[in-house]
Simulated scan of single mutants.
Amino acid sequence: MVGMVLGIIAVVAALVPNAGPAMAMLLGLAALVLGIVGLVKNHGWRAIASMTLGVVALVLSVVMTVAVYGPLKDAAASAANSILASANAGQPAPSADAETQRALKNQLRVWFGNFTPGTESDWSSVPVTVTNISQQRESYSISISAVNANGTEVEADSIYIPNLEAGQSTAKTAFKYIDTDKMDAMKSATYTITRVSVIS
């Protein structure tokens, strides 16, 4: 009976973000163990129910962590970075600090494609290709400025690249949300990396 109760709590906990899946794994494991003990002591359907709930909680916690909460966390981080970057647009373009310069030299390479203006049915875009040239898997947060010929920042954006393996490349899209009055300036802008945060 205790195993059944723990199993039910574990299944519910697996659906709760942040600490929920970790708690679900512990409770699910406890429910599974108690179910096995109950089965050995011939407690019948309650033992089987406890084992089943424990297994369901364990599987559900892993699935939710990998398939749901991880991508949601990455998307939230990317959106927050983009909002912060855009808030600084219109200022003189900031210079890359020493940490960023080291990262661009030793840990990653970044290439920019051409700006494609937005339409009524699609967003604007600048293709960005990032290659991990380090010897280990890394995650990157990269702040980018679109700069006009006078050195003034036209627009700013940020991209987040999670878990890029050593030697691997990935493609991202920057500058999706551009105001109509900035479209012409974006067509002739150049792109500069103002900040790289490396998250091992």
Rank of each mutant, 00 (worst) to 15 (best):
W123T: 14
I36V: 14
Y177P: 01
L84C: 10
S78N: 09
E153G: 10
T192Q: 10
S143W: 13
S82V: 15
A47W: 05
N88S: 15
I133H: 03
I159M: 01
A80G: 08
T170P: 02
F115E: 03
V33N: 00
A67Q: 10
V55F: 07
G7Q: 07
K41W: 12
V110S: 06
V154G: 01
V2Q: 08
V11K: 02
L34N: 00
G54C: 02
S78M: 08
Y69K: 02
P127F: 09
V198E: 03
N88R: 15
N42T: 15
A85C: 06
R109P: 03
Y191G: 06
E153N: 12
V147D: 04
S169E: 09
L39I: 13
V12W: 04
M4A: 11
L58Y: 00
K176A: 13
T65Q: 04
D179H: 05
Q101Y: 05
Y160R: 06
E165T: 15
E165V: 15
A85S: 10
S141L: 13
Q168L: 10
K73S: 09
I193E: 03
Q135L: 11
D184V: 12
L58K: 03
K182C: 06
Q168V: 15
S145N: 10
N81H: 14
P71K: 08
Q168R: 14
A30T: 12
M51D: 02
T173C: 02
N88K: 15
A79D: 12
T52V: 12
V66Q: 08
V59N: 04
G54F: 01
A75D: 11
W111H: 11
D97C: 08
A87K: 14
P21Y: 00
A174Y: 00
I36T: 07
A87I: 12
D74A: 09
T180W: 10
M4L: 13
L15W: 09
A24T: 04
I36L: 07
S169V: 08
K176T: 13
W123M: 12
L34W: 03
L6Q: 03
Y160S: 02
V16H: 01
V5M: 07
A80S: 13
S200D: 11
K41Y: 13
Y160W: 07
L164M: 10
V66H: 06
S200M: 12
M64V: 11
I178Q: 01
N88H: 14
Q107N: 07
S50M: 00
D184C: 04
L6E: 00
M64K: 04
A30H: 01
Y160T: 09
R109W: 05
A10G: 01
V5Q: 05
Q136P: 03
L164R: 06
A185Y: 02
G35D: 04
V126P: 03
Q107S: 05
I142A: 05
L53C: 01
T131H: 00
A171Q: 14
G90L: 12
Q101F: 06
S197L: 14
G118F: 04
F112W: 07
K187G: 08
A166H: 09
S61W: 04
V2L: 14
L60S: 06
